[in-house]
Design a binder for these strands. Structure first.
Lengths: 219, 219
DNA sequence: CATGCAATACACTAAAAGGTGTATATTTTA
DNA sequence: TAAAATATACACCTTTTAGTGTATTGCATG
């Protein structure tokens, strides 16, 4: 793929960012910016019409987000490489992106060198993860990417379904008593669920639990 | 100011964005990129050392955010123009930025034309707001900017600056004691701030306060 | 079929937060 | 300049959470 130009679709709704990106990639002779999309829906449509080699996909986009778009694009066009770009480095999101089929995950706060490395990796059918995120992962003998054991816990649901129900109510501002009444369990049980979540997430109070829940979209 | 080059400090931790910006502004003969900062603290320090005409300031930055940095820079160097850049278009944030002394507010999803318009406006000592945000505001006879009545309720600080400081720490999971120690106030005062917020927002506990704070981007 | 996880429940103690009310100095603003 | 808002601080009492630990039941998977 290195011998001919990679056709790139940029799917990102931050125009300033995209314009900057254009200038950065202008100098790259083996990359051709072949299209733009300002949301996931448009990205999907364009991939169905045109032939792209790579999609640079923002996670947060209107209408359809980058992860949903990746899923749909990979279903119909598995050969298209998806390079995920995000502001945030939370593991659940990265895992979701990779599970959706993303081939690279870079942060918007990495430098352009990393970006170009990612393109090179993709052209060699490798999976690329920004250095600052790499510590979450490990590679198998077959070079496949695995989330490190110590982080699996984090990404996979440590929070059990029942705990999630409780958590949802906690975020709504319910007290243990109210939660107990709602779920037809004892106050003690509701309290135990809360405490278990605090313990396993290494948090010390409800405020940070609520923050965690919202940030990790567990509610 | 138009006759000589504007010295610009770019304060943003998204390197890809910054690099792109550099390319965009390279073509502008009356703008000179004179420095970079990757957080609010660095921006403040650089403004104390060097003479800049304009700071392009991201809202969300590590250590010290753009709004705090703006406050501090404007206190010591009121002549420096601050151009706020943000991903999000929520009114409380815009108002906070303007109250902190920002001279322009543009979104990262506007095009570079808007960016250049903003620079021009600053050089004429005008306040510039991205078009897509302009509907929140109205101009007085004296051309000063006012939040439209229908938005005031939203924007005007239901939550006072001090309360916001406390709120920020609450969201971080701090207890009243810890908040008191951090802000050098009595536990009672920290507690009063918390209680006042609960009262005026009609909430009954910290969990819902945290939720409110995150949803309304007050943190 | 045993081991582990999930869900349930409880004891006890300490710490924190919630409810209500008061008070005062300072700053903003009408 | 007077009124309003803000930041500060405290009293008293109740409710809720946090910290630590135990325990039983059922279900699933190795």
């Amino acid at each position: 793929m290195l011998d001919k130009k990679m056709k790139l679709l940029i799917a990102d709704d931050h125009r300033l960012f995209v314009e900057g990106l254009r200038f950065i990639l202008l100098e790259e002779l083996h990359i051709e910016i072949a299209g733009f999309a300002i949301n996931g829906k448009e990205a999907i449509e364009k991939c169905n019409k045109e032939n792209y080699d790579v999609v640079l996909m923002d996670i947060n986009m209107p209408l359809i987000d980058g992860i949903q778009a990746t899923l749909q694009i990979k279903t119909l066009h598995p050969q298209i490489k998806i390079m995920m770009v995000s502001m945030l480095s939370d593991l659940p999101t990265i895992n979701k992106a990779l599970n959706a089929g993303a081939d690279a995950f870079i942060l918007k706060n990495t430098d352009s060198g990393d970006l170009l490395k990612a393109f090179k990796a993709l052209s060699k059918n490798e999976i690329f993860i920004s250095e600052s995120l790499a510590h979450f992962f490990t590679r198998d003998a077959d070079n496949s990417l695995k989330t490190k054991k110590e982080y699996i816990q984090f990404s996979e649901n440590i929070i059990t379904p029942r705990e999630q129900s409780v958590l949802k109510l906690i975020v709504e501002g319910y007290t243990n008593q109210h939660i107990a009444d709602t779920l037809f369990i004892s106050v003690k049980t509701a309290d135990t669920h809360r405490k278990n979540m605090l313990a396993k997430l290494n948090l010390s109070n409800t405020a940070s639990l609520v923050k965690f829940a919202i940030e990790n979209k567990l509610v």
